[in-house]
Design a protein around this nucleic acid. Structure first.
Lengths: 182, 182
DNA sequence: ATGGGCATGTAAGGAGTTACATGATTCA
DNA sequence: TGAATCATGTAACTCCTTACATGCCCAT
């Protein structure tokens, strides 16, 4: 099985959902669904796709689309499905989190209060942007039958709660820092 | 400046807080303070320490402690302090998040509901463990004067809110999945 | 005709992780 | 005397990221 990276499972999983897709579309789909907890770049997608094919977990369907434009579609093999399902059943490995904002704030005493407030304001802006993206996705999902969107909704809900909670914390932290300034 | 990794700043920052410390103690301190958003391993600490010394950002104080036991203490130079403060003032770079639980859940349709519930239960357990650690740290911090613990409390508060929100989400998700099962 | 989206890749590098290696001290 | 903690390091590796490279199609 060689490669132990998680990218392969992200790709296998997306292929399981989409049934058939090109590397390009795989990425597009991730951008509009998993992007807030999982991203892949083309530079990882294409080599992994090749490797998965070698291992017979997926098969390539080279079809010259209408305009004989190059486009490689892939589909899961039953072996690939087995490997994917097996991974899905394995316990989640604890991830190492690295949060730069927290690190900077933790050392906040070494710079002015204003600097820290600025970091927080910037964070707030980004969180709000995220939130509106999530809400948009949620809107789109509401058109689908629940059975199909069940798990998307669950993960999305996590994202929304996370953002909401972070936003509250930001406001609180800013308030605290502003009161210290005086 | 060569190395662009963040480890150096974590180390510089901890040295700024502790004033003087060995690689070993640096790690110990991180384990009891920043571990929920930042960790370093010995294998990264020692080489980085060496590199920082080369760049004159820190100085080594080789002192054979009492029992002539090897122990290298380091302190920040003023150049190191400048570099650290400069980094602290730079905007936080967006981090790429990879959440394996979310990824597995997103593909949850491909396995049984029970598997997904199990993942969530395991997550709950871990979150509760985290929460009790955080609360312990909070307790310890309450002995310190607020001015010194201000930023520790802010980051800790973030951790606590995050965990609480995740815990709520877990309960909700489990409830949803259990209702689907029937 | 040119800029943006479609579409696929290669090459090099970097930062950090895992595994390995060593040895003194302290406590039970 | 043996396990746990203190204490420092090296080597290999791995996965991912950044930068580079190419070329077609379509709309304005």
């Amino acid at each position: 099985m060689a490669k132990s990276g998680k990218s392969q499972f992200a790709i296998l999983g997306m292929l399981g959902l989409l049934k058939k897709s090109s590397g390009y579309d795989l990425k597009k789909h991730m951008e509009s669904s998993t992007q807030y907890f999982w991203k892949e770049t083309f530079s990882s997608i294409y080599p992994v796709l090749e490797e998965l094919e070698e291992q017979k977990l997926i098969v390539k369907i080279e079809k010259k689309a209408k305009n004989n434009r190059k486009r490689n579609d892939y589909i899961l093999t039953s072996k690939g499905e087995t490997v994917l399902k097996n991974w899905l059943m394995q316990p989640v490995e604890p991830m190492q989190i690295r949060n730069e904002l927290m690190l900077k704030l933790f050392f906040g005493n070494m710079v002015s209060v204003e600097v820290n407030i600025e970091h927080l304001e910037k964070q707030k802006k980004e969180l709000k942007k995220k939130l509106s993206i999530y809400q948009e996705i949620k809107h789109e999902l509401s058109d689908m039958p629940t059975s199909e969107s069940l798990y998307s909704l669950l993960t999305l809900d996590h994202g929304i709660r996370q953002v909401l909670s972070s936003l509250e914390w930001c406001d609180n932290a800013i308030k605290t820092l502003k009161s210290v300034k005086k």
